[in-house]
């Protein structure tokens, strides 16, 4: 199936990716090719097959004891942050 320019634009919006005007047709073509390729899955008979989300079936979640093991590391962690002030991460104004 071929994706339209509008579909590419809306996927890019959902994924918060800025695409230039000349990138759009490239992704249009690439994604359409990929979707056509993975469309082969449609032919597989999967009636009554339980989807497999993990490669080790049967394992279940381990539970951690409720203990505080981590202290304050914000000064170190914020060295990687593009913009901070007074311990806060700063972003352009959020309008609610």
């Amino acid at each position: 199936m071929a994706l339209t320019r509008e579909q590419i634009a809306s996927i890019a919006t959902l994924a918060r990716l800025d695409l230039t005007a000349d990138e759009v047709p490239l992704y249009q073509e690439g994604l359409s090719r990929i979707l056509e390729f993975v469309g082969a899955l449609e032919r597989a008979d999967t009636a009554d097959v339980t989807p497999m989300a993990h490669p080790l079936p049967g394992l279940t979640q381990r539970l951690r004891p409720d203990e505080v093991t981590e202290g304050d590391g914000h000064e170190r962690y914020q060295q990687n942050a593009p913009r901070t002030a007074a311990g806060l991460y700063l972003v352009p104004k959020v309008i609610e």
């Binding site: 994706l3 590419i8 992704y27 979707l35 993975v38 899955l41 597989a44 999967t46 989807p51 497999m52």
Partner: peptide, 28 residues
Amino acid sequence: KRRIMTGTYVLSAGYYDAYYLKAQRVRA
């Protein structure tokens, strides 16, 4: 970016079952 877009698409409303869930069934 191509893979993020592909992944976003196959999980999006209306396509999840046809792509993601189907793929996890074939994976089984």
